[in-house]
Design a protein around this nucleic acid. Structure first.
Lengths: 330, 330
DNA sequence: TTGTACGCGTTATCAA
DNA sequence: TTGATAACGCGTACAA
């Protein structure tokens, strides 16, 4: 492999001069700059980042920790992260944990092994103490999912308010019996959205019925099962599912039971993933700015890496009600 | 930061001994091994990978080059890659190019800057010469999409055969007028699937009509537009879309025009992405073993990294016809 | 404006 | 079985 020494020899200068040309700093005469550039060209030289990284004590790698890469929600965020990262000459290490604690640990440790300069975590944190300890010594940002008990900055949306808005919208359509299909309450967002749902009902003097609240997992099948369970007991006129994927399952279940959407039952989802526009009826939902979430998280972490004294403020981005075909005024 | 020297001092041994304990090689007395381990524990020492990587001239990073992370097809492959990688102590660098040549170049160059030990490319290659040149000096595997003119090993499926099977299946159902909604023919898979479609028609003495063959892009809207264009000219009884996402668009278009699926028109897709089971009707399709494609590609590239003399054979994995609700015997 | 020489943290060779 | 020390390739302080 050709090194900076080879280039120096070819250009008849010292390695220091080559390095100066490479990094565009320090004084270099035009003449030498040219001959260095020609030598680089001739030898097809590319600096070895392993050497550079060690010398500079940086990896220029950002670790993106997420539960699952197959979830379109995360992949949109990831895209935002990647776009900002590449503009700033950072690279993204893909770390999907599948909620495996062991795996999470392996990935997190990369940062104290200096293979990553910072971490963006979209994971519900499993090993809280370890994570917190890590954040004292290294740049870490939480994105979308976060743990508010822990003093680690986050970029997210106002889940309470968003769920409130979703529920309130159903109420404004005339719905009186509104079911909630929630996901696993180990997620903070799930707990917050449930609160938002409850508050909206209270504010409008609608009785809260435990039978209408289901804690499903996260996934199409869970939404499908949940709605069947609910409707087997009681007819509803509105359904709020805390994730589009749950809503899609619910739509299928509702259809199978012979109800029509939105005439009999209005359904609203959450996230605004692409699929929501592809189904029939298209899905009314609360849109999260997924791409922007990723962008903001990346910007924060990069700023933080550059300046360790910079303490990011938490950021809550705006959600948006997107009305499509699955909801209708009664 | 604590280094191997700190550990050596604490354990009252040399750095060489610490290194031996760390890497489990060479002879170390049980006594010293223990005291090194205790020192590591006490100081909470973690080896700096930047130093190790430079010394060993490896990054233990594999670069995953793909067009778009948001496409569920690629994210499934990626999962297969990641799972194999982590088992072998490799990490995955996420490189989505968005078909941007500049960006592709940036990512590809990481390998001759030694930040990656190998590349798995799912991209239709833009800069063929550069790519080929690179593959002479570095481990590269093509996965799913590949360029057969170039001598770079690949893992894929038999796209010709798979498309033939899809078309043949429609014919076996009694379809006489079968449309093809293809994606962009810059992709090899698109060209191969078209060939498979044509061959199946020929083998069954069905007239090939250019009006029934549309080169759409890739995406839901494209499928939707394509089917409207086709049906505005001529009624068909079968549609083969070369990607599920196109098929989903087609389903929507067909429905809007008042035809029923599968009674009036049978539709078959390709890929078997998750959404295909969530729509109504659920989609008959040719399933690609996406996860396995990723796994195989990762296994090959790792084997190749370990042994530069190992020349991988091309691998074609089996596809599978998955029959659901969108097709029916006439 | 340029060059010499050191050190980033690790592994591996060699001699003891 | 152990330790001293030379690399790995780079950037930069310092001297010139």
């Amino acid at each position: 492999m050709t090194t900076i020494y080879d280039v120096a020899k070819e250009a008849k200068v010292s390695v220091a001069t080559v390095s100066r040309v490479l990094n565009n700093n320090g004084y270099v005469s035009e003449e030498k700059r040219m001959s260095v550039k020609m030598a680089i060209e001739k030898l097809n030289y590319r600096p070895n980042l392993l050497g550079r990284n060690l010398r500079k004590s940086e990896s220029r790698i950002i670790l993106a920790l997420l539960p699952s890469i197959s979830n379109p929600f995360y992949s949109k965020i990831l895209k935002g992260i990647e776009d900002v990262a590449i503009k700033n000459e950072y690279n993204i290490l893909l770390c999907s944990t599948d909620s495996d604690r062991e795996r999470e640990r392996i990935y997190l440790n990369l940062i104290n092994q200096k293979l990553a300069d910072g971490i963006i975590s979209m994971n519900p944190i499993q090993d809280k103490d370890f994570f917190l300890e890590l954040s004292k010594n290294y740049p870490i940002i939480q994105c979308s999912e976060y743990n508010s008990n822990i003093k680690i900055p986050y970029v997210s949306i106002d889940n309470f308010r968003a769920a409130y808005d979703a529920t309130h919208y159903l109420i404004s359509l005339g719905c009186k019996k509104i079911a909630l299909i929630n996901s696993n309450e180990k997620y903070l967002y799930a707990r917050l959205r449930k609160e938002g749902y409850l508050q909206a009902l209270r504010d409008n003097n609608i009785t809260i019925k435990d039978d209408l609240i289901i804690c499903a997992g996260i996934g199409f099948q869970n939404g499908y099962d949940a709605v069947k369970r609910i409707l087997s007991k009681e007819k509803v006129d509105g359904i709020f599912a805390v994730a589009d994927i749950l809503a899609l399952g619910a739509i299928k279940g509702v259809k199978e039971l012979g109800y029509s959407i939105p005439s009999d039952i209005s359904i609203i989802g959450f996230d605004d993933i692409e699929i929501s526009t592809m189904v029939t009826p298209t899905l009314t939902t609360i849109a999260q700015p997924m791409y922007e979430l990723g962008q903001q998280a990346a910007k924060l972490i990069i700023k933080r890496i550059k300046d360790p004294n910079f303490i990011p403020e938490n950021i809550l981005l705006k959600h948006q009600l997107v009305i499509r075909e699955s909801t209708k005024k009664i």
